[in-house]
Simulated scan of single mutants.
Amino acid sequence: MKATFEVLRARDDGWIFQLKIGGHQVVLHSNTYRTLAGCLNGVESCREHSPYDRFYGRGEDQVRFTFHVMASNNRIIGLGCVSASAAEREIAIGLVKRCVQDARTLIARTGDEKK
């Protein structure tokens, strides 16, 4: 399945990335980075850590199931989509693990593509 890291300008004048699967479904997004370079570093950190289960945190409350990806320093680099069940959350994590390495990076402001 094709995946793309889209790097976008945030509303507060920073930068965010989101990982889209199949061209439209956002399965992971970042917090805001101050610079484009910082955001691109976040994408690379996500590529490095996402394939390994030990870098995932999982959470849940009464109605939703969440996950996040952490770097080796335990800082959160990506927030996963909210799921209605633990099984759906695990499917989303599996998609991230499988697709992140081959995902292209598209900088929305310029249309530049990085690999």
Rank of each mutant, 00 (worst) to 15 (best):
I76D: 09
S83W: 00
V82S: 13
A108K: 11
Y33C: 03
Q101E: 12
I16D: 01
G78E: 06
V69H: 02
A3G: 08
R47A: 05
K2E: 09
K97T: 05
N31M: 11
A108D: 11
S85E: 08
V43Y: 04
A10Y: 04
M1Q: 06
R104N: 07
Y56V: 01
F67N: 04
Q25Y: 13
F65N: 11
C39L: 01
G78M: 04
R98V: 09
I91V: 13
H24F: 11
A71H: 07
Q18V: 07
D53K: 00
G80K: 04
V27R: 08
E6V: 01
A87C: 08
G14F: 09
R34Q: 14
R109E: 15
G42C: 04
I93K: 00
E6N: 10
L19M: 08
C99T: 12
G94F: 03
G59T: 06
M70W: 03
R47C: 01
I16M: 14
E90N: 11
D13V: 00
S45P: 02
A103L: 03
Q25V: 12
G80F: 02
N73M: 01
K97Q: 15
V7F: 01
C39K: 03
A92Q: 10
A103F: 01
M70N: 13
I76W: 05
C39H: 03
I77C: 03
Q18L: 10
W15I: 07
A84H: 09
Y56F: 13
E6F: 08
R54Q: 13
S45E: 10
S83R: 06
Q25T: 15
G57T: 09
A92K: 06
H24E: 14
E44R: 08
S85V: 00
E6I: 00
F67D: 04
A10M: 06
S50L: 04
L19V: 03
R89E: 09
N73R: 07
A37F: 06
E88N: 09
R11H: 13
L28K: 06
D53S: 11
K114H: 06
E113K: 06
D53T: 11
I21M: 06
T4Y: 02
F55G: 04
S45A: 12
R34H: 13
E48R: 09
V26P: 08
H24I: 08
V26H: 10
V26T: 15
L40K: 03
S72R: 10
Y52I: 04
V43D: 02
R104Q: 11
R58T: 14
V96D: 06
S45R: 10
H68A: 11
M1H: 09
G78F: 05
I107M: 02
D112R: 08
R47Y: 08
Y56I: 08
V82K: 09
H49P: 02
Y56E: 02
G38V: 01
R34L: 13
R75S: 15
I77K: 00
N41Y: 07
I77V: 10
D53E: 12
A103S: 04
T4C: 07
R89I: 10
D61A: 06
A3F: 00
E113R: 09
Y56L: 04
T32Y: 02
D112P: 03
R75D: 15
S50G: 05
I21Y: 08
R34F: 11
G111F: 04
V7A: 02
K2P: 15
G14D: 07
Q62W: 07
R64Q: 14
N41Q: 12
G80T: 02
D13F: 12
I91T: 12
I16C: 12
G23R: 00
D102L: 00
T105H: 05
A71I: 01
A71T: 05
